[in-house]
Amino acid sequence: MPMQEKNGQKVWQLRTTKSQWIRWGMWLVGLVIFILSWQEISDKTLWFMMDNVGEVIVDIGSRATPPRWSYINQLWWPIWDTLAMATLGTIFALIMAVPVAFMAARNTTPSKFFVRPFALLIIVSTRSVNSLIWALLLVSIVGPGVFAGLIAISIRSIGFCAKLLYEAIEEISETQVEAIRATGASPLQVMVYGIVPQIMPAFAGIAVFRWDINIRESTVLGLVGAGGIGLQLQSSLNVLAWPQVSLILLVILFAVIIGEWISAKVRGAII
């Protein structure tokens, strides 16, 4: 315990003087970085425009209310498309994520030096790029529409699901696997009896978790032309049809809440 002499008396301190200085120094550096960052944002902002922000908000708010309820009849099909992209996208992603996860997990990978880095590369590259960027790319490849969004959602979700799944695989109890191996089971049987039951809860949890996220993401893919309710949002924004925008936002909010409710129920039932 660091002590310090002060007026001839020992004073207790939590940390030594040196580590205290380092701590303060790190806080200072962090603060300077933050101020510089803020400065940069501030420089690029036309602050005189901000004087009437209140008015703008009130203006948009009054234009957006009440929502144009009748517009809902043109939204049913986009809503269906949005959910289809999220659901099918999640399923495709899971189908592809499972082998990637088994290749990436240290205890199941066929080869630590060739296969595993490749699997990790797939995980990091699909995960780092936002689904909107994938959609942007796929629209230019397969053309605008729901299909592009579906593929974008799938690709983005592979890395996410595979990462969580391979972490779950690495955490399984090795003795249970050993016990199955000791019965003379073949490698595939060891997988089915020893490994799969252990990761099943994690798998189901990941699936509904990602499905929930994908509903949110699929609502905006239409902004870049990849189908779903985002298309209507984009076109309504383009013509400044604020009552339609507010209706669409309400619908999205509703869909997200339902999705979250279902995924919470399913996770509760499994675990």
């Binding site: 109890s173 003795t175 249970q176 050993e178 016990a179 199955i180 009896y193 020893g194 039951p197 252990q198 099943m200 809860p201």
Partner: peptide, 9 residues
């Protein structure tokens, strides 16, 4: 096995 090593699920 010592810890039974049953596949618990």
């Amino acid at each position: 096995f010592q810890e039974y090593a049953l596949v618990e699920r």
